[in-house]
Design a protein around this nucleic acid. Structure first.
Lengths: 238, 238
DNA sequence: AAAATGTGATGGTCAGACCAAGCTAACTAA
DNA sequence: TTAGTTAGCTTGGTCTGACCATCACATTTT
């Protein structure tokens, strides 16, 4: 533990320290489970104040590189599971009820998309919607339900607005809620009627988009999303 | 900013603070872009030492909830990154014509927000809308126009939906278009009538939200956004 | 040998101080 | 009057030194 640590000089002391220790871990000079010297000693090694050293260690702990054990010391962690999750994901994971906020946003975007899709859809857009619809129809006969077909259908509508942002954002939102979407799909298979109902709703949306009826398409989509939402909430309370 | 912060007592002070601030963001009591009081003041509010407060802020920064700007202050960040993902932002910055797509999305979200705001607004929401409105009124007399007041008004509407995601996403979108928004603002000042027109539109939106008229509010907002869009396109082609 | 005691090590917290770098406003010089 | 300058304030960044609570471990006592 003699001179592995280089003196700090130029800018943003804690970040420099973070960088150095990260490098040492990467180079294997600091092994997982290894104990670092106490704060005071470390600060002296680096030639910085204890506050700066502490900040650095805190950042490293937040990032998951080290673990601070009270009255024990600072230990290098195995960085096998780098779960660097995004702030929004943290909030969503914290409390499931936040997913309803996300669903609200999805509705905002999808309802607007459906309206515009009905106005601007081309025949090629229609066939893109039809593909997952057909597959879902076949599945329904066997009381199956494939979430990916459902997603594909909704994305096809977003695509029909000819605004790539709507597609990507919707996809991002659906990915965020993926776990729970899967749960809903699972439940739907149990009650076979649900599968047929969704299929029927999708068909009606498709028809409205096909005949270029923005208001109709929009309200069908609203009905559909609201139905799913209620189903979802019902499952959630069980 | 009086008593949003609760005194800290029990265990692990910095983590308590982190939790409180995360909650405040989730509840929408801290808006994206909002500036927190300086460290010393915050520490006093929480009743803790500056070191502890600093640790908390550092953790929040590492997690991506706040941004620390030297000699400026601590700012709440938009937590919508998985939705408005980096690659998406890159694409947007690459090609100016994509901004029209972005504006479409903004309309989707703001129209839905305005509708819901008119349904759910509280009196406190109204006063948050009123503040930038009043400032804009005073500015208009002097043929001034402050973009930040405009943004604040729109964000206040999003806030009135009581869905923090809407606020964060809208802020994100507005930030992305910031340069161009600034350009529009500049042009508007040249033709004084534009400033008054915007003020008038804002007022009408406010009134509709106040009297809980979702459809009215929505269509006023649509009129407003469409007008700005046309103005913008007109400038763009010059 | 077992129990009680004490001492030191360690992270947690606080208070106060100084610095550098921006911002603002008052001031000075043209 | 105007433009440039200066002085002071604010803010995050950093350092120092101090005190606390708790645990580990060695020492002492029974």
């Amino acid at each position: 533990m003699d001179s592995v640590f280089n003196q700090i000089r130029p800018y943003k002391i804690p970040e420099e320290i973070v960088h150095q220790i990260k490098s040492l871990i990467k180079e294997g000079k600091l092994q997982p489970g290894e104990k670092l010297p106490p704060e005071r000693t470390l600060a002296e090694h680096f030639g910085v104040g204890r506050s700066s050293l502490r900040e650095a260690i805190n950042i490293l702990e937040t990032l998951g590189f080290v673990e601070i054990k009270k009255r024990k010391g600072i230990y290098i962690r195995s960085v096998s599971s780098p779960i660097m999750s995004d702030p929004l994901i943290q909030i969503l994971e914290e409390d499931e009820s936040n997913l309803y906020k996300l669903y609200e946003l999805r509705k905002d975007i999808e309802l607007a998309s459906t309206y515009m899709a009905a106005e601007h859809r081309t025949s090629s857009d229609l066939s893109k919607m039809l593909k997952p619809l057909k597959r879902m129809e076949e599945d329904a006969e066997r009381a199956h339900f494939s979430l990916s077909d459902d997603v594909e259908f909704h994305l096809a509508i977003a695509q029909a607005t000819h605004n790539f942002l709507r597609v990507h954002i919707l996809k991002n939102i659906l990915d965020l809620a993926d776990d729970y979407m899967g749960l809903i799909a699972w439940k739907l298979i149990e009650e076979t009627t649900g599968v047929f109902l969704i299929l029927d709703q999708h068909k009606k949306i498709y028809e409205a988009v096909k005949k270029k009826d923005p208001h109709g398409a929009r309200s069908m989509m609203e009905e559909h999303l609201t139905w799913v939402e209620e189903k979802w909430k019902a499952f959630g309370t069980k």
